[in-house]
Design a protein around this nucleic acid. Structure first.
Lengths: 220, 220
DNA sequence: GGTCAACCGGAGGGATGCCTCATATTATTC
DNA sequence: GAATAATATGAGGCATCCCTCCGGTTGACC
């Protein structure tokens, strides 16, 4: 597939088509942000002022629309998050990374959903998730090597943290929009190396983590 | 309303009616446990081998069925949880209470849902929730007074813990059914007095908590 | 065993969502 | 200003769920 072919796919030829596509993406971003990734496609089409058939013409599957709506923002997030790694203080880097991540979850329910789910076999989403896992691993390992984060935790534990934060955000978005920040700082005390207590249960394996995220996606 | 009236309501006169009612409750317990409190009522009726109209005859609203299915188990849980308060060691009592609670969440998705939601204006459910809040407050205050739990946390923080555990359980139930226990022990390190660092965000107020739980219930 | 109130079944109306396809429209090209 | 290929439309089929209502059934009581 040549570059030209790709351009062919990405940019519809006709101007009106491009306009409708843009409107659809904008509506999708709004709707996903409020209702999560399971938002009604028919409502998105209505909001965009476009017929449902047109939505399906541009985005044959929900995932196509999801990616079009989120990919730029996700990539931007991934790039921005690198800054956490550039902090001098490894603990600050760890905190900064999580704070940024949690904040994005709080601001966009779709983003929140997207983080918790994996879409097996879809190269683009897998790439994004893998990239994020690597960031988490980096930021965690660095803090562990510096002796500030406890050594007995893994990337999977951070994913758990992301899940739980997602739930807290879902619950508190309306009533206490900043509650997640309190939760984060509370949780940070669980991750400090000083005076850590042993944990009886082993961490989740990578396969378990992966399965769990696929599961979250499949269960209505 | 006399005791006789209550009996009248609770025990339908005809034997076949009582049998169907029992079958419905049994099916509801199974279905709520697997699918959560939003399980399809039509499927529950089908599973019970009963027509949908019969379900509605016995349980005019979803909440009626929910209560019939969960109330005994909930009451049993509340009674059992008192044991945590009888422990000599306040910290052990705290841990024991949470472990028992989390374990019940893990075993029943409906129970898990039910814990996180409030149903305004329904005396029975409010009573159960209030009773639980009091238990949490007791177990926490005791551990705080003994100096083993950090003093800057509130009942609302424990509710947050319940929410997050609920999410982790939903995610890991199939792939790693014991992951919640690891999470619990990790979180415990955040609640120990000896490890506490200041938290920048104030705790949620009681109203915020209440609103959040109602919200969770109202959002599809 | 007959009567009757209590009970049951399940069709059906209404809502929502997914997705397709035949038809109508329109931007672009010549 | 045609011709045409790309595009848009939205009705409609299918599925799921909620809930109601009325005709038919049956247990309980005399």
């Amino acid at each position: 597939m040549s570059q030209a072919d790709i351009e062919q796919v990405r940019l519809p030829r006709r101007r009106d088509a491009q306009e409708r596509r843009d409107k659809l993406i904008a509506a999708a971003q709004r709707e996903f942000a409020v209702r999560g990734v399971d938002a009604s496609l028919e409502k998105i089409a209505r909001d965009a002022g476009v017929a449902i058939g047109t939505l399906y013409r541009h985005f044959p599957t929900r995932l196509d629309l999801l990616l079009a709506a989120f990919e730029p923002r996700l990539q931007e997030f991934l790039d921005g998050a690198k800054k956490a790694l550039e902090r001098d203080d490894p603990w600050e880097g760890f905190v900064c990374y999580l704070e940024n991540l949690f904040g994005m979850q709080a601001g966009d329910r779709g983003f929140n959903d997207f983080l918790s789910r994996r879409f097996p076999g879809h190269a683009n989403t897998e790439r994004i998730h893998d990239q994020m896992c690597r960031q988490i691993q980096d930021v965690l390992t660095r803090a562990q090597n510096a002796g500030v984060a406890r050594p007995d935790i893994t990337q999977g534990d951070i994913v758990n943290l992301i899940w739980s934060n997602g739930r807290i955000i879902d619950a508190t978005r309306a009533a206490a929009p900043n509650a997640w920040r309190r939760y984060l700082y509370l949780m940070l005390d669980a991750y400090r190396a000083e005076r850590a207590h042993p944990i009886p249960e082993p961490p989740m394996t990578d396969e378990q983590l992966y399965d769990a995220m696929v599961q979250l996606n499949e269960r209505e």
